[in-house]
Amino acid sequence: MSQKLKVLVAGTGFAGEGHVDAFRAAGAEVVGIVGRTKSVVDEVAGKLAIGYAGTDWSEALTTCQPDIVSIATPGGAHYEPIKQAIACGCHVFCDKPMTHSGETAVDLCDLAQRKGVKTAYAASFRYAPSVLHAKQLVAAGAIGEPLEVECISHFNLERDIPFGWSHRAESGGGRLNNNFTHSLSIVTSVVGEKILSVSGEVRDDLGKAPIVEGVHNFMTRRNFIPKDLSDPSLKWGESNVEWSYTVLAQLESEHAARPVSVLFKHGGLNPRFNEDHIVFYGSRGAIYIKGHYGSGQLYVWGQDKAWNAVSLPQEIVDAVPDVAGETEQCWHYLVQEFVKDINGETVPPYPTFKEGSQYQQLIDIIRKNGSWTDVSDLA
Rank of each mutant, 00 (worst) to 15 (best):
4 K>A: 14
6 K>M: 08
15 A>W: 00
17 E>K: 13
20 V>C: 07
21 D>E: 14
22 A>H: 04
23 F>C: 05
24 R>L: 08
25 A>E: 13
29 E>T: 10
36 R>Q: 03
37 T>V: 04
48 L>Q: 08
52 Y>F: 13
53 A>W: 00
54 G>C: 05
56 D>T: 02
58 S>K: 14
60 A>P: 03
65 Q>N: 14
69 V>H: 06
76 G>P: 00
78 H>A: 00
82 I>S: 01
97 P>E: 03
101 S>W: 01
104 T>H: 04
107 D>T: 07
107 D>I: 05
111 L>Y: 06
115 K>G: 04
121 Y>S: 04
125 F>Q: 01
129 P>I: 04
135 K>Q: 15
135 K>Y: 07
136 Q>E: 13
137 L>I: 13
141 G>K: 13
142 A>Y: 09
143 I>N: 08
148 E>W: 13
149 V>G: 04
154 H>F: 09
165 W>L: 00
170 E>C: 01
176 L>N: 00
187 V>G: 05
187 V>Y: 06
190 V>M: 07
190 V>R: 07
192 G>Y: 08
196 L>C: 05
197 S>T: 12
197 S>N: 12
198 V>M: 10
203 R>I: 09
206 L>W: 02
206 L>F: 02
216 H>C: 04
219 M>L: 10
222 R>Y: 13
223 N>T: 08
224 F>S: 05
234 L>S: 09
237 G>R: 02
238 E>G: 00
249 A>Y: 05
249 A>L: 08
251 L>H: 09
252 E>T: 01
262 V>K: 05
267 G>E: 03
269 L>H: 04
272 R>P: 03
273 F>L: 11
279 V>N: 06
279 V>G: 02
280 F>M: 06
281 Y>E: 10
282 G>Q: 12
284 R>K: 15
286 A>Y: 09
289 I>V: 09
293 Y>M: 07
298 L>I: 14
302 G>D: 09
305 K>L: 11
306 A>Q: 15
308 N>M: 06
310 V>E: 10
313 P>D: 10
318 D>T: 11
319 A>L: 13
320 V>I: 15
320 V>C: 07
321 P>T: 12
329 Q>V: 12
332 H>A: 14
336 Q>N: 15
348 P>N: 11
349 P>D: 14
350 Y>L: 12
351 P>N: 14
354 K>R: 13
355 E>Q: 15
357 S>P: 06
359 Y>T: 11
360 Q>N: 12
360 Q>K: 11
362 L>E: 04
362 L>C: 03
366 I>P: 00
371 S>P: 03
373 T>F: 13
374 D>M: 12
378 L>H: 12
